[in-house]
Structure formats: C-alpha cells, structure tokens
Design a protein around this nucleic acid. Structure first.
Lengths: 344, 344
DNA sequence: GCCGCTGTTTGGAACGGTCCAACACTCGTC
DNA sequence: GACGAGTGTTGGACCGTTCCAAACAGCGGC
C-alpha cells in the first residue's frame, strides 16, 4: 500500500516537517557545524520519523561523485579472488568508498558490455580483478575513469595501473624448492594468459639455472580441476618408468591449486602416492590448499596485499588521473605443506 | 588531460553537434519510431563521435527505475552461491535487469548498514543470498523495495518471498541412502541457522522412521573445513570400536560439502579409510564434491533452479509489491559419488 | 487561401539533491 | 547610532536526463 502509492520522502518533505528550508536539511545531513542545535535536532527527528534516505542518483548528479568503485570479477568459481577483495575493501572502505561488484563472466554471452553499467552509474573508479574476457571494453572504460587491474598483468594500457603477484618469481621459488629437495625430473603444467606465461618462464628459468631439462605441459583447457587431471594423466600415464624413452617426472609444479588438485586425482587413479611417488606444488594458496585432506604445498601470493595495493593505486589515480601507469609486483612466498618431499 | 579537464559529453553536447534539440536526442536513444531517418542517423553519428554515455543517475532520477537489482552476498568463501547467481542472472538478464553485488560480510564490522548503498542507489529490487548477519537491515529495506531471500529460509518477513532448497527433504534423502546401504550407526554434524536446523530435522526424521538412534553432533563453529574436522575428531576419535560404551558410527551425514571435507581429513588422520571404514555424505554439490580426489556423495540442491525461481519471484513482486509473501522449496536430489558404500 | 490532419520537432517543467550568494539577526566597537 | 564582523538560515540556480504539451512543416481537401 504505502510503498506503491506514496512517494519516497525527499529532502523537501523532511524540511517541511521540521519547519526549516531544504538547504538547512542538506547542511545537517552533511554534518555542517554551522547549524544551531535546536534545528539540527528537529531535522534529525524528522529524518527518523519519515525514514528518509537520500537519493544517491540526485546526489551524485550534482556532486559528481558517487563514492562507489566498481569491481569487475572474472570467474567466481576460482576462489583466489576472495582474499584480494578483502584487501581491496579494507583500504577503500577506510577512505569512504563502497565496493559494488559485477561478474564479467555472467553477461559475456550477451552483447552487453560489462563495463557499461559502471560507466553509466558514474562510479568513481574501476578495479578489474583477474583476466577479463574482453580487454577492449576495459580499455575504453579506462579512458573515462580511474582504472586499476589487480591480480593479473594482462592488458597493459596507457593509464591503467597494474598490481599483481610476481608470478615468475613465485614459480621460480616453487621449482627451486623441488630442486633443493633433490628432484631432477620436474614437469610443469601450464596455464593460460599472461599469468600462465610468466609462471612457465619462472619454472624454465629455475630449471635451466640448475642445468635441468624443462618439461612443460600445456594445459589446453582453462584452469580447472578437469584440465589439471587430463594434463596429469597424459604426463604420468603414458610414460612408464623406462618405456618410451622418457622417464616419468618425480615432481610437478602446477599452474594453480585447482590444477594441482586435478594432478592429485590423476596420481591417485594411476596408483601413484603423493608425495612418496610424486611431489606436487600448486599456486595461489587458496583455501583448497589448506584443506587438510589435500594439504598442498603451494606458492602463497599474498592476494590480500595485492588487493590493498590495488586500492591505494586507485586512490592515487583518482587524485591525479594523468600520472603514468604504474606496475607493481608483490613478493610471493612458499607455503610448505605436505605434497612435496625429497624423491624416494 | 582530456579526462580531468573536460566534462563528459551530455545529451546537450550531442544535440548541438547533430544540430537538433536535446529532446530529439532523447527520443533517438529510446528508440522512438517517431524520428526521421536523417535525424536519427545524425544523432547516432554524433553519439559515436563524442563517445557519449547516458548518465544513469540523471536518467533514474526522473525515470524512477534503475533497471538494476542489488544482490547481497553473504560469504563468498563458500562456493555454493555461484550456481545460484548464475540462475538468478539468466532470468533477470532476460528481463533487462542488471545485477550488482555487494558483500555483506565485508562491511559487517563497520557500522555501515550494507543495504544502505542499494537503498540509496534506488535499485529496483533486492536479492539476499544466504543467511545474512543482520536481518534487521533487511527487514527495513524490504519495507521500501521488492525483496527476495534466496538459498535460505531465515528471515520470514511480511512481504519478502523466500526461495530455498527443501533442506529437510535433502537431509532425509541422504540419511535414507545410508540406511538403505545397510548403515545403522549414522551420525550427523550439524550446521548453524535455520538451514542447519532443517537438515538436522530431516536426518532425525529418517533415523526415527527406521527405528534408529539419531546422534547429532553440534558443530559450534561456522560451516568451515576446520569446524567439520574438529567435530569429526570428537566424534570418531574418542570412541573406539567397543570402548566407552558407544560404538563408532559407520557413516556420517555432514551439514555441507566443506564440513564433509573436514570429516574426510579427520578420518584420514585417524587411519580410517573412506568409504571402507566410514561412509560420508555431504550437502550442496559444490565443485568441491566434484573434485575427483574427494569425489563426495552429496545432496544436489539445484541451486541454479533456486536462483531462477528467486528471480521470477522478484519480477512478480516488482509488478505487484503488495501480494502476500511466497515460500518456495526446490526439490533436491542425491548425487551418488564415491564416499558412501555399504558398511564393511 | 484556409482548414484540419498527420508526422516531426521543440522548449520547458520536473526529478531530488548540492552549492552559493544573499539575507536577517546579534553583538561589540568607534 | 551607524558600521562591520560573525553566525544561522534561505531562495534559487544547476546537475543531465525524461516527459509532455505545444509548435511546426507539409499536404490533401474544401
């Protein structure tokens, strides 16, 4: 009843009820010290009685700020972004900014440009988390509002900051850990995109530095358990200990935790015990790796810190939109758990 | 440069450039058939040249519709909501509505009412996914805009529709499956909230219907792997086969998949093989259950369908805001995988 | 040549806020 | 008693759209 017929209260209704002008109501709502206590109380009382909420559209129309940043998420099925969001939010919130999220994947199939919603809302800034399907749309959005890419290195655009893990370094850490344990035949299951490229490069660098043959296995599918499983079956299944000339690797560095879990499944199916017959290191330190039943040794890429730094980048860019693009790398570390030991 | 100094193009800039009035530009943008082809072309050309984007704030101010629904997420660490969002989006998008998401958990610690952002944005509707920390805020929001709760039964509010899985039925399915396999000593690890309550009830009903003693274990922590692990250690560890009078259960029905994974870890640590020594059924059929290395038998609660129905409820409520609240339950099914077999 | 008629086009009033210049009032000062 | 400074308060312009009533152009009929 009420809801459908009556209009929502406006600043004018409040003013009328409190017996003051709308300007004064506006002042009170903005916490101006210039108003007398009596009137302030009257206004606040009226606000309470009418259950008044300011209209963000009207406000942002004149103030030209929405105090909202848009966050574009890529694939919510991959849990690594959760920590990043946490970090992002902690800093943004401290600066009075809200986060609204949209899923780039959901509307991908329709022609709808997923940045459009945010552009029309006139958000104060944009954060792209992870590799997005359509970088063209992002480039366009970046032309009109402060934009930061977090968690990937991918689109290198003129005025877009990038904050990501040092993926190459993380891969090197993992590979060197395996080498340090005594492994010689170490395979890598590669992922897509620039992140996959960098991790592969880190792996290769570590192998070559120790005079070892690198053995990269491309994972044609995206970063899923299924992809890791299939790659691992191909890698571990066909080559017996001595058949076909190539010896089975004793260790695998997988593109990420999900892929590593796929490797785990494949190993189990092939009768290989991890870590006795096969050492395994994942990447991202997602909560998957922390599950005791999996207990993956993995590269901890400090997503929380990536989020925090991305937020600070955005804040700076909102201040000075035209400063040159900045590329930050966050130091990863190794999280040693149960899946990597010295070869048997 | 350009970005910081120049204002964004408005409908007036477009009109000026195209040599028409702003009203005509508005008509073109709304796809009115009343405009001549020549002028339409001129306007569209100007739009392209200026890279004009309508201002959503100004538009919604007068149109009183934002074509946006707000989605309140609870805990992004629990992956069950992803499918639900998919379903939600498929229907909403087909009706020209966009989804924006906010995380209720993120801003919980600050006093900020997490529905406020959406209320101020004047979204056309609100969907609460999962159990939210503060139902008071939700109740208030529901008073002013169409609201639907999806994935939980929790706040039963006057004009708020609820779409959820039939959790009680799902629990009964799981328990009866275990009974059908021949298990007699079946334990349940319980979760919190109304969902936890209902699943417990379903478990108890099935047990009693077959004349079996129910044995519910409260999980004091929230639905995490850690909580499931601790509960399982308490359940399986202390009671030996014959000591202490109580025999160890041969099967466990866990509150959800994450909890079940915790049980898996505990069993492994205690030297119990799943499924030989212990059968286990989870709930939600998240991708965790699908991981081959876990391969959980679990209750499939058709989250996609829940999302779709929630969206349809919202659409109906947007049409008729005052119709009585509707409560829908979606039928679950059992997803038989590898963790539940006949007792040894 | 004037009249209605249809089909386009237009100016101006909302929408609900913020901001600014102007105003009214009270003091203290010369 | 006039004047200036300071404190509280107010009306009105403006933000970028949509919508509506009115203006306008062209055209066939009388």
């Amino acid at each position: 009843m009420e809801r459908s017929n009556k209009r929502l209260p406006t600043i004018r209704s409040v003013a009328e009820r409190a017996g003051v002008s709308k300007s004064l109501v506006s002042l009170v709502l903005q916490g101006s010290p210039q108003v007398s206590d009596a009137k302030r109380a009257a206004v606040l009382e009226a606000v309470r009685e009418l259950d008044y909420r300011p209209n963000a559209a009207a406000r942002s129309l004149v103030a030209r700020r929405t105090h909202t940043v848009g966050v574009l998420l890529n694939d919510m099925r991959n849990p690594w972004f959760v920590e990043l969001l946490d970090g992002l939010n902690s800093v943004l919130h401290a600066h009075g900014l809200r986060m609204l999220m949209a899923d780039g994947r959901l509307n991908r199939h329709t022609g709808e440009d997923f940045t459009r919603a945010f552009a029309e809302l006139r958000v104060d800034g944009l954060v792209a988390v992870g590799t997005l399907p359509d970088t063209g749309a992002l480039a366009e959005a970046a032309g009109r509002l402060p934009t930061v890419v977090a968690g990937t290195h991918d689109p290198e655009l003129p005025r877009v900051d990038t904050v990501a893990n040092d993926d190459e370094r993380g891969a090197r850490l993992a590979t060197e850990h395996l080498i340090g344990l005594g492994h010689r035949r170490i395979a890598h299951i590669m992922g897509q995109g620039s992140v996959g490229e960098l991790r592969r490069r880190g792996y290769e660098a570590a192998m070559r530095a120790h005079g070892l043959d690198d053995r990269v296995l491309m994972a044609p599918s995206d970063a899923t358990e299924e992809g890791g499983y299939r790659a691992a079956v191909r890698l571990l299944g066909s080559t017996g200990r001595r058949t076909s000339g190539v010896e089975r690797p004793t260790a695998v560095f997988a593109f990420n935790d999900i892929t590593a879990v796929g490797v785990l499944s494949a190993a189990q199916e092939l009768g290989l015990d991890v870590p006795r017959d096969l050492s395994l290191i994942g990447c991202d330190n997602t909560y998957l790796a922390r599950i005791r039943h999996l207990w993956l040794t993995t590269v901890n890429n400090a997503s929380h810190e990536v989020g925090r730094r991305a937020a600070r980048c955005l804040l700076e860019r909102m201040d000075r939109p035209d400063r040159p693009a900045e590329r930050q790398l966050v130091e990863p570390s190794l999280e040693v758990r149960g899946t990597a030991v010295a070869p048997y």
